[in-house]
């Protein structure tokens, strides 16, 4: 095949119907978002690799992945809507219903649960519920998108067992929680405050966090650096490594030809 064909093939990755003017994608996404989408796609040698960040971009606009959002991604990436839908429903970070201003994720995996995560989750659900009906998984207190609205979810392992029980607000950590501290936190969020996370970047809101997950950071470079460089390691997490360093401990090298242990027959 000649060069011209190669060019035609790669040009083909540009969808034949311009997504920016395709009315089937609605008018939900403005020119800026279409430009951002093209920017994301340009990062990858194959356009379909851009699907995950593009879905975050969609969530930064609507606070969830709507049908229009799926069509938006499908058109930009020359994928079928069924393919995009399959990815959206597989990953829990993509929400199919509108999210609140903040997303509160409570870890209820083994260690957190044992150390009080279940109690934290239960207490928050009751506290955020109305008229005696506690909130359920991925339900929202307040009107989604409005100030002070909060969506709650129970999350699988958030990878912070040494700080259990933990929860996250818009994916920023709040360590060593108790039911009381968690209630205090969500009340502050409902009042429009943005308490500082235990570690990491300062708190914004769900849609802003989603824009960062799509790979877009604030224009102010100083602010941007501080978001990226914010310390994320807790003292508990690095204590073991520091102890080993102090005492000069090293792990034995792993030989290449080590025999694997026998697996017991069933």
């Amino acid at each position: 095949m000649t060069e011209a064909h190669e060019q035609a093939r790669s040009a083909a990755r540009e969808p034949s119907v311009d997504p920016a003017t395709d009315p089937s994608a609605g008018e939900v996404f403005d020119a800026d978002i279409h430009a951002k989408a093209r920017e994301v796609i340009a990062r990858y040698p194959q356009s379909r690799s851009a699907l995950l960040p593009l879905l975050h971009l969609v969530q930064s606009v609507q606070g969830y992945v709507s049908r229009e959002g799926i069509t938006f991604c499908a058109r930009h990436l020359d994928l079928s809507e069924a393919e995009v839908s399959g990815v959206v429903t597989f990953y829990t970070m993509y929400k199919r219903r509108p999210c609140g201003q903040h997303l509160v994720s409570v870890c209820t995996n083994t260690l957190c649960a044992a150390l009080g995560g279940d109690a934290v989750y239960r207490r928050l659900c009751e506290h955020l519920g109305e008229e005696g009906r506690p909130l359920g998984h991925e339900e929202t207190a307040g009107t989604p998108g409005e100030q002070g609205s909060i969506t709650i979810e129970h999350a699988e392992c958030l990878a912070a067992c040494d700080l259990a029980p933990v929860l996250q607000v818009n994916y920023e950590y709040f360590d060593n929680q108790s039911p009381d501290s968690a209630v205090e936190l969500v009340d502050a969020l409902r009042n429009g405050d943005k308490p500082a996370p235990t570690r990491g970047a300062p708190l914004t809101d769900f849609r802003s966090a989603e824009l960062q997950l799509a790979g877009f950071f604030p224009d102010d470079s100083e602010q941007s650096r501080s978001d990226v460089d914010a310390p994320t390691a807790a003292e508990e997490t690095v204590r073991g490594a520091r102890l080993a360093q102090d005492r000069g401990w090293t792990a034995p090298a792993m030989p290449d030809d080590v025999a694997l242990p026998e697996v017991e027959q069933k």
């Binding site: 799926i70 069924a82 839908s85 399959g86 429903t89």
Partner: peptide, 26 residues
């Protein structure tokens, strides 16, 4: 649907035990 007829309608939705085949957006 995808490879033979090229209609790209059927996919999967969900994960784990709840997975199902799905048409377009489920």
């Amino acid at each position: 649907c995808d490879d033979v007829q090229g209609n790209d309608v059927i996919g999967r939705t969900g994960k784990g035990y709840g997975s199902r085949i799905a048409f377009d957006l489920n």
